[in-house]
Amino acid sequence: MTDYGHDLLFGSFVTPSSARPAEVVDLAVASERAGLDLVTFQDHPYQPALLDAQSLLAFVAARTTRVRLAANVTNLPLRPPAVLARTAATLDLLSGGRFELGIGAGGFREAVVAMGGRGLAPGASVDALAEAIGLIRELWNTEERGGVHRDGTYYSAHGAKRGPRPAHDIGVWVGAYGPRMLALTGRLATGWLPSYDYLKEGAASLPAMNARIDDAAREAGRDPREIRRFLNIMKPERATVDFLTELAVEHGISGFVVGGDDEGAIRRLGEEVAPAVRRAHASGRAGG
């Protein structure tokens, strides 16, 4: 049994189809009505079949009142971190503290380059992400006086003005799989946001990946419990009560983001599956 001490969160992963924009927003609103905690959208700015994630998040924030919102995950190479810091803080202020920053090093290098971004090699992209997270947090920190000065290999600031301050401590949730990205998550992130289908050995991959995050957190002087463990479940039929309960009790997963663009499936997740998993999880904690 693995327990990082977090209550369970349940969310939707809605496809931001540019061919059906009204339906996308309706599914986000339906997620809130169903009692879900989180609505997320993929961020692929080079894909015209998809709506721009940041614009969509702002629109959905205006149509909802309670649910948290995040990109799953933000494509850093096409979102300059200093500007992303302003965007995130603005969305958080406008939504009343409901925005969270899902972020990744960026895949699909050729597509990024085609849009004018830098096509970094995998190792360099990890270093760039670490620099970006540091810069974003510096710009959010309005308790310090003076501008932000950071000389990075990939991202720098020379007197950039701080603020605005977000409405709450925005979570930084990293999509990570490889050893260096998992270590970065342990050092710098407040959440880990991978997808089940990308785990080489399914749930059997989780103990070693969790351990990598935990070890890096301890080496950085952090408590591993500071890092919430999410999991994207892209096939909604996989999101059964038994499976999600096993992930929660055995592997410490406390955030489940389920794909599928079906309002009925969203209602079942929020109204039937989530309450049952919460009861089973509470029972497992008590028994564990």
Rank of each mutant, 00 (worst) to 15 (best):
G284E: 04
V258L: 09
V113D: 05
R268P: 08
P21M: 07
G146L: 10
A124Y: 00
G270P: 08
G186W: 05
E263C: 08
A167L: 02
L188I: 05
A265W: 10
I266Q: 02
D214G: 13
V174L: 03
G116R: 03
A82V: 05
R109G: 05
G287A: 13
S125A: 06
A19E: 12
D3V: 07
H158R: 14
E272M: 09
W173E: 01
D26A: 15
L84Y: 00
L69G: 09
G5S: 10
V273C: 03
A70P: 04
V29M: 02
R137K: 14
E250M: 06
T185K: 01
P122V: 01
T185Y: 02
I103F: 00
N232I: 15
T2N: 04
R267G: 14
R68E: 14
R225S: 14
A30D: 11
L50Y: 08
E100M: 12
R162Q: 09
D215S: 10
G284S: 04
R20E: 14
V29K: 05
F59H: 15
Y155M: 06
L129P: 00
D127T: 09
L193Y: 07
A114Q: 08
E237D: 15
M234T: 12
F108C: 05
T2K: 06
N141A: 13
A248C: 14
D214H: 04
G163V: 08
I253W: 03
A132D: 05
A183G: 02
F10A: 06
H44L: 04
A34G: 01
Y4M: 01
N72Y: 05
E100W: 03
F99K: 04
A183V: 09
I133V: 07
E131P: 02
T64Y: 00
S12P: 02
A132I: 01
V25W: 03
